[in-house]
């Protein structure tokens, strides 16, 4: 069985936001405005949060890219009254926008607050509106949306592999953020394959997951940055 997972090396991440842009462009996430961002209305399936540790002068800041952690035991799927969000057989937590009734219970239930609600009908500047990705739907106002590890890319990769008559290779399917990262800080793959790079890195002593104590078992691992000697 395949279990898609990601490892993010905070040592390599420079906080350049390339992944943020790639994600928004790939998944038809509206541009938003600084005003919207200020009042907590911005939608970013992937965002980099600044984390600051210690106090001046011994302060250390780092950028932490965060997308849906695709929990193995997702608290958001249990609470949905209409089963619009669920975990698929490959461990991806999906949101079916045309079933969602917009109660925002799942968003509240997510301890990481990594699901997003469409407060308004999404809008793009005219030139961008013509260039939305046809492989991903445009969401309506009033529904919740989230990262799916670019599931459409998996389907495309499978089609391609089938057309070429070969099995799916790990490099065939990579989410937009992983592809965009110039430092290669994001690694994606099958966690159930013990030889995959993801599985290897997830076993690293530097590996940790956010709020592991809650028992949701996120499938996005982080590799802690080693403090400079």
């Amino acid at each position: 069985m395949v279990r898609w997972a990601m490892v993010i090396d905070l040592e390599k991440c420079s906080g350049c936001q390339a992944c943020v842009v790639a994600c928004a462009a790939e998944n038809n996430v509206p541009l938003g405005s600084p005003q919207e961002a200020e009042i907590g209305r911005l939608i970013r399936w992937l965002q980099t949060l600044p984390r600051i540790e210690g106090e001046y002068p011994h302060v250390r800041a780092e950028a932490v890219p965060m997308m849906c952690f695709q929990c193995e035991r997702p608290p958001c799927t249990y609470v949905c009254p209409v089963a619009a969000t669920y975990k698929n057989p490959q461990g991806v937590v999906a949101q079916i926008y045309w079933r969602c009734i917009g109660c925002r219970y799942c968003v509240n239930a997510c301890p990481f607050t990594l699901k997003w609600f469409n407060w308004f009908q999404p809008r793009w500047p005219a030139t961008m509106a013509e260039a939305t990705n046809p492989d991903v739907s445009l969401r309506d106002k009033g529904v919740t949306e989230k990262c799916t590890f670019c599931h459409h890319r998996l389907q495309q990769a499978k089609d391609r592999a089938r057309a070429e008559g070969r099995p799916l290779r790990p490099e065939d399917y990579r989410p937009a953020c992983v592809e965009a990262c110039p430092q290669g800080a994001l690694v994606f793959g099958d966690l159930d394959d013990p030889d995959s790079e993801v599985a290897r890195r997830a076993r690293s002593p530097r590996a940790f997951r956010f709020l592991e104590e809650l028992g949701t078992q996120p499938k996005v691992y982080y590799l802690a940055a080693t403090p400079e000697a």
Binding site: N88, A94, I96, W98, S137, T148
Partner: peptide
Amino acid sequence: TDCLSCHR
């Protein structure tokens, strides 16, 4: 029959 196959 995964929902995600046709709806996303």
